[in-house]
Lab assay of single mutants.
Amino acid sequence: GSMEQGFLPKGWEVRHAPNGRPFFIDHNTKTTTWEDPRLKIPA
């Protein structure tokens, strides 16, 4: 929902695949990933 959306880094969006699995869109680089960007520790 909109709650989890608010925690994503700037430029990211979460969508759900037809099977219900969430995936993440990085509008900054125009890419998608199954990995939650929030789980990655910034270098």
Rank of each mutant, 00 (worst) to 15 (best):
G1N: 11
G1F: 10
G1T: 11
G1S: 12
G1P: 12
S2D: 12
S2V: 14
S2G: 14
S2I: 13
M3C: 09
M3I: 12
M3H: 11
M3N: 11
M3D: 14
M3P: 14
M3G: 11
E4P: 15
E4L: 14
E4H: 13
E4S: 13
E4Y: 11
E4N: 11
E4M: 12
Q5D: 13
Q5I: 14
Q5N: 13
Q5K: 11
G6W: 12
G6Q: 10
G6L: 13
G6N: 11
G6F: 10
G6D: 12
G6K: 10
F7W: 14
F7Y: 12
F7S: 15
F7A: 15
F7M: 15
F7L: 14
F7E: 15
L8V: 05
L8I: 05
L8M: 08
L8S: 02
P9V: 05
P9D: 05
P9W: 06
P9N: 05
P9E: 06
P9F: 05
K10M: 12
K10T: 14
K10V: 13
K10P: 15
G11M: 02
G11S: 02
W12S: 01
W12G: 01
W12C: 02
E13Y: 04
E13Q: 03
E13K: 00
E13S: 05
E13A: 00
V14M: 15
V14P: 00
R15H: 08
R15N: 06
R15I: 11
R15W: 06
R15F: 08
H16N: 08
H16G: 03
H16E: 09
H16A: 07
H16K: 09
A17F: 06
A17Q: 07
A17Y: 07
P18S: 10
P18L: 08
P18K: 09
N19Y: 02
N19D: 15
N19A: 00
N19E: 04
G20P: 00
G20Y: 00
G20M: 03
G20W: 00
R21S: 06
R21D: 08
R21Y: 07
R21I: 09
P22E: 09
P22F: 06
P22H: 09
P22C: 11
F23E: 06
F23T: 04
F23S: 03
F23L: 09
F23W: 08
F23K: 04
F24I: 01
F24G: 00
F24R: 00
F24C: 06
I25V: 10
I25G: 02
I25M: 05
I25Y: 13
I25N: 02
I25L: 07
D26V: 00
D26Y: 04
D26H: 07
D26A: 00
D26C: 08
H27F: 07
H27T: 09
H27Y: 07
N28K: 07
N28I: 08
N28R: 04
N28S: 06
N28C: 12
T29K: 06
T29E: 05
T29A: 05
K30I: 05
K30W: 06
K30A: 14
K30S: 10
K30E: 09
K30Q: 14
T31S: 08
T31E: 08
T31I: 08
T31H: 06
T32Q: 12
T32K: 10
T32D: 03
T32G: 07
T32A: 11
T32W: 15
T33S: 08
T33G: 02
T33P: 00
T33Q: 08
T33Y: 07
T33R: 01
W34F: 09
W34E: 05
W34R: 01
E35W: 09
E35K: 10
D36F: 02
D36K: 01
D36N: 02
D36W: 02
D36E: 05
D36V: 00
D36R: 01
P37S: 01
P37R: 00
P37C: 09
R38H: 03
R38C: 07
R38A: 05
R38Q: 04
R38S: 06
L39R: 07
L39G: 14
L39I: 11
L39E: 11
L39V: 12
L39F: 10
K40L: 14
K40I: 14
K40F: 14
I41M: 12
I41G: 13
I41C: 15
I41T: 12
I41P: 15
P42N: 12
P42V: 12
P42M: 09
P42S: 10
P42H: 11
P42A: 11
P42E: 12
P42D: 11
A43V: 13
A43Y: 11
A43M: 14
A43T: 12
A43S: 12
